[in-house]
Write a protein that binds this DNA or RNA. Structure first.
Length: 417
DNA sequence: TCTGGGGTCCTAGGACCC
DNA sequence: TCTGGGGTCCTAGGACCC
């Protein structure tokens, strides 16, 4: 990777879930464009998933935040139109976006479902001036896919990402190093990537309110005070960032968690929820041919207090039954008896699933593997609900909890961009 | 019926070893 | 005896991102 004269694009779908929903509905006969009215994509409050996942630009005056409860959003904006999410649709839209972008550069990093970095360095011989090319890309996405994006253009990923966050929608913005003082430093410090709620409040207490004030602070003092994070945000405030576009890199861990439709008050119900989550996690592990080296469970009680417990496995595995057994042991060691709102299961320290160590349990491993393989095949052919454990009948719990099964697992965001 | 679910990375303390 | 110190591994919790 050349360090000089890189040209990086950051493509950010405007109000992604909502735009995708609106585009899909228009293509299927709807006459009203959700993007033109105060509207939001939100979860189902009756099953305690009632939060705002995405909101339209006309909701701006109401100051509704993503992640806020529907209840509170409707207090702020009584005529808010809320539609339920369709994650499979959003993954298809994301995929279509990436496919289109791949025409313009071989070096692309999918940063999240709705954000992509594209390395345009040396691509001007094919597609011309970067700013012109960014406009053409943006316009093609609008025409061919039916939704708008912002494109940020700069010489590194951080600045490109900050640029794409400027005025929306359907815009191309630049933020080259010489523009940092004028365009980025006046912004509130909380708008800097990696400055979240906790850091914002600490910075405010020290009188730092803008990105510029952070940038001219003493990096040594920031480092003493906020450890490595202090140095990181000082560098980002100064536009100093040089990470490469990472086309593919290994997934570090994967997990599923869910807020239950009702509190789990007894051990059996919690175990059943853990089984449901473990089914999904283990199937995903098998799908990417990885063993879990560590299994973690997490719980959240009525007061939103979270606890977690994890264990390194003596023998890494992706067997549903073995992982479920460990999840239950971890749960029994962790749970204090209080009603639980939320449970999670997560696998980390992933290892390749070939070349596993010979052990006394090899016969058992092979037997578990044969069972899992059979179930995976049936589910692939007839759907996830074609095979389920009888304990889920009449339990009020889904046999495979945890969002969407991805077609391809790809790693999501890292703080290193 | 107020508060989701998917990730990555860092820190701090204790165990353990030399 | 009156209290080393460096290194690694493991675990829990918290910060951040979308």
């Amino acid at each position: 990777m050349g360090t000089k004269n890189r040209i990086i694009f950051h493509i950010d779908v405007n109000s992604a879930y909502l735009s995708w929903e609106a585009a899909y509905r228009l293509q299927h006969g709807a006459t009203l464009d959700l993007r033109t009215i105060p509207s939001a994509v939100g979860g189902d409050a009756t099953t305690r998933h009632g939060i705002i996942l995405a909101k339209s630009i006309p909701t701006k005056p109401y100051k509704i935040q993503t992640g806020e409860s529907l209840y509170s959003a409707r207090l702020k904006c009584p005529n808010l139109t809320v539609v339920p999410p369709r994650y499979h649709l959003y993954m298809q839209c994301s995929k279509a976006l990436v496919s289109l972008l791949e025409e313009f550069s071989p070096s692309i990093q999918r940063f999240s479902i709705d954000e992509v970095f594209l390395d345009y360095s040396n691509m001007d011989i094919h597609w011309g001036d970067p700013i012109d090319a960014a406009h053409r890309i943006k316009d093609r996405i609008k025409e061919e896919l039916g939704f708008t994006v912002n494109i940020g253009v700069s010489s590194n990923k951080l600045l490109a990402k900050m640029a794409s966050d400027f005025e929306k929608p359907d815009r191309v913005h630049t933020l080259f190093p010489h523009e940092i003082q004028g365009k980025m430093w006046p912004l509130p410090v909380e708008e800097l990537f990696m400055v979240g709620r906790a850091t914002t409040s600490k910075l405010h207490k020290k009188g730092i309110f803008t990105i510029g004030q952070l940038a001219i602070s003493d990096p040594e003092l920031l480092t003493q005070w906020l450890k490595s994070h202090g140095r990181l945000i000082w560098q980002l405030a100064n536009g100093l960032e040089d990470s490469p576009i990472r086309e593919d890199y290994p997934v570090k861990g994967l997990g599923n968690s869910a807020t239950l439709p009702f509190d789990a008050e007894d051990r059996e119900t919690s175990h059943r929820a853990l089984l449901s989550l473990t089914e999904t996690v283990a199937m995903r592990l098998r799908d990417i041919r990885k063993f879990a080296g560590v299994l973690s469970i997490s719980i959240k009680d009525r007061d939103f207090q979270s606890y977690s417990h994890q264990r390194k496995l003596e023998v890494p595995t992706h067997s549903t039954n073995i992982l479920y057994g460990i999840a239950c042991e971890l749960f029994d060691e962790l749970w204090q008896g209080q009603p639980l709102r939320h449970l999670g299961v997560r696998a980390s320290q992933l290892h390749r699933d070939d070349l596993y160590q010979l052990s006394f349990f090899k016969g058992d491993i092979e037997r578990q593997k044969a069972l899992d393989t059979a179930v995976d095949k049936i589910r692939a052919q007839y759907g996830c609900d074609s095979v389920m454990r009888s304990s889920f009948l009449y339990s009020g719990l889904s046999p495979m909890m945890g969002g969407v099964i991805q077609e391809e697992e790809y790693p999501m965001m890292s703080s290193l961009l």
